[in-house]
Amino acid sequence: MRRIMVATDGSSGADRAVDVAAEIAKALSGNLLIVTVADSLAFEQAQQMVLAEGSTGDVLEAMTTQTLKTAEARARDLGASQIELQVGWGDITRSLIDIARGGSVEMIVVGRRGRGQLAGLLLGSVSQKLVSLAPCAVVVVP
């Protein structure tokens, strides 16, 4: 297994997923693809932050860049060296599946729950859908 993708939204669950993915990538001398997806919730958060900061697009880009850079630093601290960053847009599950298919990903690592509104569920909707629909192995990190 040489190409591992991890999805992050900056949550503590996503941080744990980044940790696991980085350890796997390091152990296998594999490539780590760190992905965040800007969906309608992220767009709403960006609109609230706009005030005097600039356009919604600028704020959304800054948010996604910060999320990815934080995850990249975390992965590098754990020894992952071959790291790529990517932003997806739209439906989170669909975007992750499309990126996995297009990037020859052999494993997707996700947190059990992210920032979703139904945080009380044992398995979040994105991770649950990925387990059912992904074209590769999926590791769900508690």
Rank of each mutant, 00 (worst) to 15 (best):
R2M: 03
R3M: 01
M5Y: 03
S12D: 09
S12I: 14
G13L: 06
G13R: 06
D15N: 14
R16L: 13
V18I: 08
V20E: 15
V20L: 08
A21N: 13
E23D: 12
A27S: 12
G30I: 00
G30S: 04
V35G: 06
V35F: 10
V35Q: 12
D39R: 02
L41W: 10
E44R: 07
Q45W: 14
A46C: 06
A46K: 03
Q47N: 08
L51T: 15
E53R: 10
E53I: 12
S55L: 12
S55N: 01
S55H: 06
S55I: 01
G57K: 05
L60W: 09
A62I: 10
T64K: 07
T67Q: 15
T70V: 14
E72C: 13
A73N: 04
D77H: 10
D77M: 05
G79A: 03
G79H: 10
S81N: 13
L85Y: 06
L85C: 11
V87E: 14
G88F: 07
G90Q: 13
I92W: 08
T93D: 09
L96E: 08
L96C: 09
L96A: 01
I97T: 04
G103K: 05
M107F: 06
I108D: 09
V109S: 02
V110I: 04
V110T: 08
V110R: 09
R115A: 11
Q117W: 13
L118T: 00
A119C: 03
L121N: 08
L123M: 02
V126P: 05
S127T: 03
Q128K: 13
K129N: 08
L130H: 05
L130W: 07
L130M: 06
V131M: 11
V131S: 12
S132K: 04
S132C: 01
A134N: 02
V139T: 14
V139F: 15
V140C: 09
V140T: 11
V141Q: 00
